[in-house]
Structure formats: C-alpha cells, structure tokens
Computed example of a mutant assay.
Amino acid sequence: MAPPVVDGRVPKNKFGNLEVYVPTMVPRGGVHVAHERAAQAAFVLGVDYAPAVTGFRFQGRHGTAVMQGVVIPSEPEEAVRTAIAGLEELDAEAEQERRTQRALRLWSRFLKGLRIRERIWAAAAGEEEGEAQAQAQKDGDEKGKGRAEESDAEMEDAPSDVTEEYDLDEGGGFLIE
C-alpha cells in the first residue's frame, strides 16, 4: 500500500510512477484518472501527478509496464477532468480545421482544372466562334439571334458522327480509307 497523499504531493516509486493494479492500491487522498490526456491536463494545471502502472504486457521474455492514466490528489480532480474535456475540444477543432483546409485545397485544385479545361476548349473553338460572332455583329443583333436559333434547329436534326456505324469486318477494326 502506497503512503497517502500529503499537501497535494502524490507519492511515487523509484521509477517516478505509482503502481495501481487494483482500485484499493490508490493512496488515500488521491484519485486515479484513467484517461490518455490526464497527464497533459495535470501538467497544464500544475497539479502534482504520478503515472499509473496498471499492469504488465509480456511479449516473449520481455515484460513492459502498461501505463493507464495518472494518480492525482482528490481536490483538483474536477479541474483536471474539465481540462481534459477542454483539450479534447481543442483537438476536435484542430481536426475540423485540417479537414476544412483539405477540402478547400481540393476545391481550389478542381476549379483550377476547370479553368484550364475551359481555356483549352476556348482556344480550340475560338476561331469558329470568332467568325460566327463577327458575322452576327455585321448582320445586326436581331439577325444574329435569328441565325443562332436557325443553326441550333439545324444541329438538332443533324445526324451524329458518334452513332455512324462502320463495317468492322473489312479492316479488322481499323478504318480503311
């Protein structure tokens, strides 16, 4: 049994921790806070604490101590638990900020790709559109609109190049000229 907590000082062994294999091993005047952020919260608040060794893990012939939480004086327990909640909240906000920044980077990349694609298509079709717009301006706004409507109607009835069937048997799948 460990000596009791006196004046807010948690007793420690020669390794700087406290063995708490069962709840009765927690010293009087102390409390075991089994949380991964407990040591950080106690350090931030300036509370004396001792890492709690709750068992051992054996792999082959080597035994490793399992640390789970800390032992702190019972008086600042509520403050430590509140600090733990605050640290978790900060982590959640930081994670949300990282996700937001990643989403913004992906959207930015997507929009840049769309702009590049638009410029490429505009350069390829620019000559044809430029001639059509010049002709429309010569004919006047009303005539230009009428021609655009006529060309749209013609395009709806025009046969598609995509659906044109080719005889694949003659060229083995290649187009013969």
Rank of each mutant, 00 (worst) to 15 (best):
G46L: 00
V26Y: 05
Q59C: 03
A103G: 03
E77C: 03
A122P: 00
Q96R: 12
E128N: 07
E156L: 09
A158V: 10
E128P: 01
A158S: 12
R98L: 11
A92Q: 08
L106G: 05
K138V: 08
R81Y: 01
V47C: 07
V26P: 09
Y49V: 00
F15I: 04
F110M: 15
S108E: 15
S74E: 14
V66I: 13
G30Q: 05
V10A: 04
P23F: 06
V33Y: 00
E165V: 11
N13C: 04
V20K: 07
F110H: 15
F174Y: 08
D139E: 14
E154L: 12
E95G: 08
G172P: 04
E93H: 13
V44S: 14
A50K: 07
A2V: 10
L106Y: 11
A65G: 01
E97F: 03
K145D: 06
E89T: 11
G69T: 01
E93S: 06
F174G: 02
S160P: 02
Q135F: 13
E150K: 04
G60Q: 04
E129G: 01
V6C: 06
E150T: 02
F56W: 15
E165G: 08
S151D: 09
E156T: 07
W121D: 09
E128A: 13
K112M: 15
F56I: 02
T100Y: 11
P27V: 01
K138C: 05
V31A: 06
G69H: 05
E36C: 07
D141A: 15
H35V: 02
R102C: 01
D139Y: 03
T54I: 06
V26K: 04
T54L: 00
F110Q: 14
V66P: 00
S108C: 13
Q40L: 09
A83L: 06
E154S: 05
A153K: 12
A136W: 04
E95N: 12
A39R: 09
M67L: 15
P11A: 07
L45W: 05
E19I: 10
P51Y: 02
P76V: 00
E129K: 13
V71F: 05
Q135A: 15
T163W: 13
V71S: 08
G29P: 00
A124T: 09
L168I: 07
E164T: 09
V80H: 07
L106W: 12
G8P: 07
R57H: 10
E95F: 08
K14Y: 08
Q133A: 08
V66N: 00
Y49C: 09
L106N: 09
H35F: 00
L18P: 09
R9W: 14
G69R: 03
A103W: 10
D139S: 12
E97L: 09
A134E: 11
S160A: 11
L45Y: 10
E170T: 10
L90A: 14
